[in-house]
Nucleic acid binder design. Structure first.
Length: 661
DNA sequence: TTTAGGG
DNA sequence: CCCTAAA
């Protein structure tokens, strides 16, 4: 299949606006992708394990790629990762890295340039490491959200990846990815990595550490040396190297991440033991953080602002009044957490450096998590995915990637996603089930993006999101809607009971645990996804699974994309990873949305306000969108239109958004 | 099986 | 959400 991925000058402008324009000099103008490529899809867990993506995840990624192909951009002039998507550039998000044969023209006629390959590998490794770092921190912070990161690499790198720890090449299996996966979104997770000169920049220092192992994971366990952190520290003034030192002092381990901003953020979080990264200046005395100052004029300001704006209020994931703990504990925490995971809980955690380790930072899988895992597990063991198939195709190509690997493999015109199983996973077990998690891949951001009526903005948003956990709402969304009711919007977003914790989509790195938790508990503290027999003889889902905002948005998006009525389609493409939510559910939800959107059209304050809060405050913009879609598809429920109805908002919206569907 | 509606 | 008719 062919796909054109165009990059318009305007888009660059958009990026520029977003503040990341610099990176885009490397964008190709237009690229035709016609050749099938072989991809492997793995998810990077925070602890470094590389686990195979579940079917659902594959589906989802597929969906993303397919859905977005026409609007995706690719970075083609550099022989390295074509792109990656991350909803935050951080753990809580999905990190999707892709590579395709295209854009690697240098491979077409000649042998692979070892340097380039190395650079790409290193890039990947760095990405992985970052993800892991992020994840680790989130874990340490007690985030209950399970983030995921996906990495898709083509054959050129896959064989190399095999050499990385965490991947057991003997456990590969294939997952056919129906079509070519041509599109990519340039990742700006590391803006600098995508700059033209980035390759050199990021590859001059070998990322591989001892034994070619991925740097992060278990590696160094040297104690954090907080003594090195005495006095005032202004992260903004530090060089990469200094940041590295600070990092090490804080976390007790080395890092090879070269993203300054990331380092700063990470360190900040480590020092404050919170997710509030607004401060970059610290005064440390006697191994204790005495003061943290709000910084100004750092290049991170934008992000911080956006962050706060999006989140509404800065949420600190550390308990209030809790003693500032040192980064080391974070690390230790994670370690012990790992142990705990194998035992089921932390009750028996041996030697944790008790001190001020906050109980909150102990991540304990939720029941739901386990359930879902179990669900998947059984599904897998049912033979759907065999881990035996593996290497066949993959092995071949990996052995000859020196030539035209991708094409070789794709000679059959088929794209294959190879599943990698995690070897590293064997070391760490998650209670009850395999490491495969299902239906909680962070794709919400896509929903957000897609929801954005402005396609242009989408690009920028994507980029921005990818850049880091600094902005969590689509630019346009923010600006557009914000004009009318900024606070409202964010409150709505925040107020939605999102038990799925999908807020991490717009949430930040470490996750806003407070929000998440509150939200979490407010919802179905824990739902039995299982169906239970009804007194009437039938079976029925035990608890209603409250619709998440992101789900709603996804739905809306799906409807707009595939049309109302095509619910199986929507289910399949947009809700691939939501094992629950049948097409019927979607339909029903849509019906409700429709009703809702036309019901309380304007501001039925008073009575409604409270009711809404109790129920589910669907952001007006969404309702608006629903309304508009309904009108467009002439689904307008005739009797529901009350008073002001379509007249005002309807038409205007219509105009405003026409053309985006 | 998937949709559309009613309950 | 469930159930069912209809396609």
């Amino acid at each position: 299949m062919e796909t054109e991925v165009g990059v318009e000058g305007n888009d660059e402008g958009k990026f520029e606006e977003a503040g990341f324009g610099k990176t885009y000099s490397s964008l190709s103008s237009t690229k035709q992708l016609t050749d099938p490529v072989v991809y492997k899809l793995v998810r990077v867990e925070g602890d470094g394990r590389l686990v195979p993506a579940t079917d659902d995840e594959v589906m989802e990624v597929k969906g993303l790629l397919i859905d977005e192909k026409s609007e995706m951009h690719i970075v083609a002039d550099i022989g390295q990762p074509i792109g990656c998507i991350s909803n935050e550039g951080s753990s809580s998000g999905m990190l999707l890295q892709l590579e395709s044969s295209e854009g690697l023209s240098q491979f077409e006629n000649t042998e692979v340039d070892p340097d380039k390959l190395n650079a790409r590998l290193e890039y990947i490794e760095e990405m992985l490491q970052k993800v892991k770092e992020e994840e680790r921190l989130r874990l340490a912070c007690g985030s209950r959200d399970y983030s995921s990161a996906y990495v898709i690499v083509d054959s050129q790198c896959s064989d190399q990846l095999d050499k990385l720890p965490g991947i057991d090449e003997n456990l590969q299996s294939e997952i056919p990815l129906q079509e070519t996966v041509p599109s990519f979104t340039p990742s700006l997770i590391d803006s600098h990595l995508h700059q033209s000169g980035s390759i050199d920049e990021c590859s001059n220092t070998p990322v591989l550490t001892e034994g070619g192992a991925l740097p992060s994971t278990t590696v160094t366990t040297s104690k954090p040396d907080f003594s090195k952190l005495n006095g005032e520290i202004c992260l903004d003034n530090l060089s990469i190297k200094e940041l590295h030192e600070t990092f090490k002092a804080t976390f007790g381990r080395e890092t090879t991440v070269k993203d300054k901003q990331w380092l700063k953020r990470r360190i900040t979080m480590g020092l404050t033991n919170s997710c509030d990264v607004s401060a970059t200046t610290f005064i440390i005395k006697d191994n204790k953080l005495v003061k943290k100052g709000k910084e100004d004029g750092c290049d991170n300001v934008d992000g911080a602002l956006a962050y706060n704006l999006a989140v509404g209020t800065t949420i600190n994931c550390s308990q209030q009044g809790a003693p500032i703990s040192h980064g080391s504990q974070l690390e230790d925490q994670v370690v012990s957490d790992k142990r705990n995971r194998s035992t089921g809980d932390n009750s028996g955690s041996e030697d944790h450096h008790t001190e001020q380790r906050a109980a909150k930072r102990v991540r304990k899988p939720t029941r739901r998590y386990i359930e879902e895992l179990s669900e998947v597990e059984s599904k897998e063991s049912s033979g759907k995915l065999r881990t035996t198939v593996k290497s066949s195709a993959f092995g071949q190509m990996s052995s000859k990637f020196h030539f035209r690997p991708v094409r070789n493999v794709s000679s059959d015109g088929r794209t294959v996603v190879t599943r990698l199983d995690s070897l590293g996973g064997s070391g760490i077990q998650i209670p009850c089930v395999s490491r495969v998690r299902r239906s909680r891949p962070r794709k919400n951001f896509m929903a957000l993006l897609k929801f954005n009526p402005n396609s242009m903005g989408m690009t920028a948003t994507l980029v921005k999101k990818a850049l880091g956990a600094h902005s969590f709402l689509p630019d346009n969304y923010e600006s557009e809607k914000a004009q009318s009711a900024p606070a409202q919007v964010q409150q709505r977003f925040l107020g939605v009971p999102d038990k799925d914790k999908q807020f991490t989509a717009i949430g930040a790195v470490g996750g806003h645990h407070k929000v998440l938790k509150q939200v979490d508990s407010s919802g179905d503290s824990d739902d039995n996804i299982v169906t239970v027999p009804t007194s009437k003889g039938g079976i029925r889902r035990k608890h209603h699974r409250a619709w998440t905002l992101s789900e709603v948005m996804k739905l809306v998006e799906g409807v707009s994309r595939y049309g109302a009525g095509r619910w199986s389609e929507i289910k399949r493409l947009a809700f691939a990873s939501y094992s629950y939510r049948t097409s019927v559910d979607l339909k029903d939800k849509w019906r409700n949305l429709l009703k809702a959107s036309f019901a309380h059209i304007p501001s039925d304050k008073g009575v409604n306000s409270r009711k809404n809060a109790a129920t589910m405050p669907i952001p007006e913009p969404i309702l608006l969108r629903v309304r508009e879609l309904a009108e467009r598809q002439s689904q307008v429920p005739p009797n529901l239109t009350s008073g002001k109805e379509a007249g005002s908002s309807g038409s205007s919206v219509h105009e405003k958004q026409s053309g985006y569907l």
